[in-house]
């Protein structure tokens, strides 16, 4: 009898507990791009995951890109973003190069760290409210490719630029603080809570742009 009573008490004790409570405040910054009267916003649709990223095998950015992918994947609790490296650039959704951009086409999002520079570009599609893949990410040395601290700069800037390619496309980096990797002159080596909150909010909002796969 005592055993049954103990079981019953245990059962009631466990079932009486409350459900999990999500964080109340999720402070972040602006991720949308205002273009004239249009508000542009973008996120990767689950049907496009894992996002295919190309980088040259011998690129000095390669290990930093792998770190950046891992950082952004880990920002999500519900698996909203996954990426994989591909060997064929013509199949890639994002192309990463260790060189400055050669053309001024598309919408530009830049970063200015001390030893290196970064720029991410995307193009709107011919159909309304579309974004033509691929995204193009460029990170290159400001002057000396062997400058002290350039590896740190690469790691921070590649993480920053990949954040743009995930959809944080506000060109002015409005609201981002120096502690955020998405600050315009990034110095934070890793994602802040505000970076995570912002990307999480973006991936649970309605967006205006839909990605058009490459022909």
């Amino acid at each position: 009898m005592k055993g049954r009573l103990a079981c019953l008490i245990s059962l009631v004790a466990v079932t009486a507990c409350a459900d999990i409570v999500p964080p109340a405040q999720r402070e972040g910054y602006e991720y949308r791009q205002i273009l004239g009267t249009d508000t542009l916003s973008f996120k990767w649709d689950p049907s496009l995951l894992p996002v295919k990223i190309w980088i040259a095998d011998d690129s000095p950015l390669r290990s930093h890109l792998i770190t950046a992918i891992s950082r952004w994947e880990q920002a999500f609790v519900y698996g909203e973003f996954r990426a994989t490296l591909v060997s064929d650039s013509s199949r890639a959704d994002i192309i990463v190069r260790n060189a400055p951009p050669t053309s001024g086409a598309g919408l530009r999002l830049a970063a200015f760290a001390s030893q290196c520079l970064g720029e991410t570009t995307y193009q709107l599609g011919s159909a309304p409210k579309t974004l033509q893949l691929p995204w193009r990410v460029h990170v290159w040395p400001a002057s000396n490719p062997n400058a002290t601290g350039i590896q740190d700069c690469y790691r921070i800037t590649v993480t920053h630029e990949l954040g743009h390619a995930l959809g944080i496309i506000n060109a002015n980096h409005a609201g981002a603080l120096p502690t955020d990797v998405m600050y315009r002159d990034p110095v934070a080596d890793g994602l802040s809570e505000r970076d995570r909150n912002t990307i999480e909010r973006l991936y649970h909002s309605r967006t205006t742009l839909t990605a058009v796969p490459r022909p």
Partner: peptide
């Protein structure tokens, strides 16, 4: 069966209590 679920990651991200 019934148990309470949470993880260190969820706690670190500000989730409190646990999910039945």
């Amino acid at each position: 069966g019934l148990h309470e679920f949470t993880t260190k990651t969820l706690e670190r991200r500000g989730y409190s209590l646990a999910q039945r």
